[in-house]
Design a protein around this nucleic acid. Structure first.
Ligand SMILES: [Zn+2]
Ligand SMILES: [Zn+2]
Ligand SMILES: [Zn+2]
Ligand SMILES: [Zn+2]
Lengths: 174, 174
DNA sequence: TTATTATATGATATTGTTTATAAATAGGAT
DNA sequence: ATCCTATTTATAAACAATATCATATAATAA
């Protein structure tokens, strides 16, 4: 990493090219090609890695690079990348599926902090569930492959402007 | 509890009536009435407490008691109960919102174990996240109101018939 | 009581997201 | 060139969920 200040998704051209090449390899391994449309989609995802984009978001961004692309192709590409676990699908309860890259080498998904006041989605990169997972595997005889952990509450930016946090708990899908 | 063998949702009439009355009170507190349609819906939810029913599931079950009820009313009732945190909405990645009662007095939601092979949803009633929550609140200055924790893997019933668990990880929405 | 208002319901239409279909296109292999 | 398969585009369809609106029910006032 060139600098600790550098934003996650704003990496320079070299790292970008390397990651595109890596994804091309992953597709190739499963007999899929990195078509121009797929590459444009992948680049949009890489360039906005810190966000959690919906298919529509991706579609609009890809159209800037490749105006002729169809929405269905974006959906298919996201599904393909998802099948290969290059990205994964997330649901934050707002009615649309969102997508994010799987950190390279990460066995498990990271955790999310969702602010019920402003809607911000912050992340916990470290996996803190180790002890709990071992307990689950033992007590429930359940072989864990992945997990999702989300905390709903008030983020540090909103804490002063929220008087009654409990009132925010509502009918969100989670 | 009358017996440790008794199924959670199959409680006798007394407990049922008590819980209906309690929900009536909760609605009343917020100036809502327990109409016949709402009561029929609540009873279906109570009678199937161990399941995670979709709106359509609830609709079909309620129609057996109250054939004249409309789907929209079921949706409206589920939304209302959800707003009051009497039930909450869940998303298990199968495209439909599911609903379950909040255990009386439970501050937090319980955890789910989802089998990637058979789709079974088992539950961890205890809340094991206490230490992690304190760490999140401290390190991220995040006021936690609720959480969702789901483990995806292979349940004890399927463990013998699944050869390569990692292959099951796919493109589910979570 | 009757009139008036607010709330709730049922039937249906509409929305919005996602998937399925069919025809067109692009590369490779023969 | 022809064939073959994968991919794409545009469009239609599926689906859950919500909005609309006329009707019905319940609470309130006169
Ligand atoms: Zn916030
Ligand atoms: Zn994330
Ligand atoms: Zn199973
Ligand atoms: Zn549950």
């Amino acid at each position: 990493m060139a600098s600790h200040i550098m934003k996650k998704g704003a990496q320079g051209g070299v790292a970008m090219e390397e990651r595109v090449k890596q994804i091309k390899q992953q597709l190739s391994t499963h007999n899929y090609k990195l078509t121009p449309q797929r590459e444009a989609t992948v680049r949009v995802l890489l360039e906005n890695e810190e966000d959690h984009l919906s298919a529509e978001d991706v579609y609009l961004l890809v159209k800037e690079k490749a105006p002729e692309i169809g929405l269905a192709t974006v959906y298919r590409t996201l599904e393909l990348l998802s099948d290969l676990s290059i990205i994964h699908k997330l649901n934050f309860g707002d009615g649309v599926t969102r997508y994010e890259f799987r950190a390279e080498g990460a066995e498990h998904h990271h955790h999310h902090l969702i602010c019920l006041n402003c809607g911000a989605v912050d992340e916990i990169i470290d996996d803190w569930l180790g002890p709990i997972e071992r307990r689950v595997e033992k007590e429930f005889d359940f072989r864990i492959i992945d997990h999702r952990l989300t905390f709903h509450g008030i983020c540090h930016r909103c804490k002063d402007q929220v008087k009654d946090p409990e009132k925010l708990i509502g009918s969100k899908v989670t």
